[in-house]
Design a protein around this nucleic acid. Structure first.
Lengths: 183, 183
DNA sequence: CGACCTGTTGATTCTGCTCAATCAACGTGG
DNA sequence: CCACGTTGATTGAGCAGAATCAACAGGTCG
């Protein structure tokens, strides 16, 4: 298990692929860049989740730690069951990415943020408090919008008494039903 | 091998998953719907491609034939190599979907259409003529925009002498470099 | 204390959507 | 054979949502 401080690169685009990575604690973002520097975050990985699986022998995306993160490297065993386990990881990721497609292709800014908050709520197994380890810019690049718009949407949700912005990195959900309604 | 006429359902959302499908000829679209009926096409499958792989035992998306399509059903053998082959299919699809994320999240209408045309050019192994088996509405739902905008972008590309719209379902690329530049 | 970074808010612009009209291609029935 | 209805594509006008540009506040760290 190795420790990555804030914004450290775990692997870069073009690096040789192979090993998988397990998040022990902290948060990781998986990103892609356009030639002219626009960034799309294709996923966040939290404690207990696995990332680094990719087709080909080169990474098409890059991974960075969002906050301080502990990462365990999983070297692939030649195990015959291993393909099956990899398949599971790949399929889980696939469904995740596909609903992300829906979000980016067909949802408004309000809906995107609401969905994102609900997803966090679910993954953090909480029913009220949400922890946002990543900053607004990361959220924006994940949701396909600008950080200003993220900020504005949060304000709208606050004004409607759906959420409470306790601090920049902590949000309390006051009305989960209204949030589901929006998403 | 069974034949599906235009717009026929191959499997529906919620159907039991399991078998894979190989496109013998024709085109298939994979779609998802929001509760209120907005549609996102997550992928097109052309001759020689495989679809139907999903996590869980229920289909999260649905598949339809775009034009007349011949589909072969592949029943999974208990083969130990089978997991490996499934993994390959899943990984190929994953990279495809991930670049689609970039397209939906970070690209303008012009860039989306240009990328789409280049992708078709590549997959049809042609260097000039593109066949569009799907109609504008399908293209729009794939690219996360409206069919009117698709039409308008095509007009812009035509006016710039980058493409030639021979007919609704056939486009000739006059300047592939300019197209790459746009995408 | 000052410099910097993140986040919020405001003003303005612009891309793409909505609504609507028109047109071409096609099929049907008189 | 032609009038009619239907469907898909194109085009136009106006509008709305989100981006851009800009100012400012709070917090952190040297």
């Amino acid at each position: 298990v190795s420790f990555y401080p804030v914004n450290a690169t775990i692997y870069a685009q073009g690096d040789e692929a192979g090993p998988l990575y397990l998040v022990e604690f902290g948060t990781v973002r998986i990103c892609q860049l356009t030639p002219d520097g626009r960034r799309q975050i294709t996923g966040f990985c939290y404690a207990g989740e696995v990332f680094g699986l990719e087709a080909g022998d080169e990474h098409g995306s890059y991974a960075e730690s969002v906050d301080g993160a502990g990462i365990r490297v999983l070297r692939p065993a030649g195990d015959s069951n291993f393909a099956r386990r990899l398949l599971n990881v790949a399929l889980r990721r696939l469904t995740r990415v596909q609903s992300h497609l829906m979000l980016l292709g067909r949802m408004s800014a309000n809906e995107r943020v609401a969905s994102f908050l609900l997803d966090l709520l679910d993954r953090q197994a909480s029913d009220r408090t949400i922890n946002l380890p990543m900053q607004r810019n990361d959220v924006a690049d994940y949701l396909g919008m600008t950080f200003e718009t993220v900020s504005r949407v949060l304000r709208v949700l606050k004004d409607r008494a759906i959420i409470q912005v306790v601090s920049a990195e902590r949000i309390d959900v006051l009305d989960a039903d209204a949030l589901s309604e929006l998403a």
